[in-house]
């Protein structure tokens, strides 16, 4: 069985919104350590994954490994019935094909319960090599979203060039070209609070060409986190990570476009 109580529905809503256009259905894998998910899109170009650690829930109970097959369109519709500040309780009883979601309003005067039919999905897991990236960029997720949104008006792909001084995003299309350079920065805003900053750590300069359609899809996770981390290695897939407060993360992997 599974019983997991999440303090704010908004987290789950945002996670589902940031995956549902990439993957239509997949298993949520539940274990003692938490709830995780990994699935590729139909064309095998992008992989989406997330982890929500057990300590992010209160309480969290899962006494054996479970794979719960979820259709994201259904989950998304049901989560629209939850208020952002509602507590969400996720429940699964062994040997059933139903996942229950209970939404408790903050004043406790409204408790709604929805059941979702689970699917039997045989999933294929990929083993992702654990290697140190040649370059690791941390930047404002809002800035990253804006760049992807702006450049798709020019072309269908972006070349990301990371050097010690910063990161350059360039796109070329039939009607012209554009580029945006984000310099490495550490700024402080008017209130003396550290503002989102860009940091670049690298062993090698990296240049990757990537589909903007996919990157724009990934930016749906930006509301979850102030920052995005991009792990890049030449001629390898990009890994984008958005932290989910301090309880987990969403990661996307995107295969690069490679010249013949």
């Amino acid at each position: 069985m599974l019983e997991a109580r999440l303090p704010a529905a908004s987290i789950l809503k945002k996670i589902v919104e940031s995956i549902k256009d990439l993957v239509s259905q997949a298993n949520f894998d539940c274990s003692e350590s938490g709830i995780s998910f990994q699935a590729m899109d139909e064309s095998n170009i992008a992989l989406s994954s997330f982890l929500l650690r057990a300590d992010g829930f209160d309480p969290y109970r899962c006494d054996r490994k479970l794979s719960l097959g979820i259709r994201f369109a259904t989950l998304s519709k049901i989560l629209k019935c939850a208020g952002n500040d509602d507590v969400v309780v996720i429940r699964y009883a062994d040997d059933t094909d139903i996942l229950s979601l209970v939404f408790e309003a903050p004043d406790n005067n409204r408790i709604s319960e929805f059941d979702i039919k689970l699917l039997d999905i045989s999933s294929e897991y990929l083993s992702i090599p654990e290697q140190e990236p040649e370059c690791k960029v941390k930047m404002s997720s809002a800035e990253f979203s804006r760049i992807c949104r702006d450049l798709i008006t020019i072309g269908s792909s972006v070349v990301i060039d990371a050097t010690k001084s910063g990161v350059k995003f360039s796109s070329t299309g039939d009607d012209g070209s554009g580029s945006i350079l984000i310099k490495q920065s550490a700024s402080v805003d008017g209130d003396g609070k550290a503002a989102p900053q860009t940091t670049v750590e690298m062993s090698e300069p990296v240049s990757l060409e990537l589909s903007l359609k996919y990157l724009n899809n990934f930016t749906k996770a930006a509301p979850l986190s102030e920052y995005v981390v991009m792990n890049m290695t030449n001629d390898s897939p990009l890994m984008l990570q958005f932290d989910v407060s301090d309880i987990g993360y969403i990661r996307y992997f995107l295969a690069p476009q490679i010249k013949d």
């Binding site: 590729m40 064309s43 095998n44 170009i45 992008a46 992989l47 294929e124 897991y125 990929l126 083993s127 992702i128 090599p129 792909s157 060409e209 589909s211 390898s236 897939p237 992997f253 295969a255 690069p256 476009q257 490679i258 010249k259 013949d260």
Partner: peptide, 14 residues
């Protein structure tokens, strides 16, 4: 134009 690669050429199946 560059070709879109597949993730399968980088990641193995578990």
């Amino acid at each position: 134009k560059p070709n879109q690669s597949s993730l399968m050429s980088f990641f193995g199946k578990k």
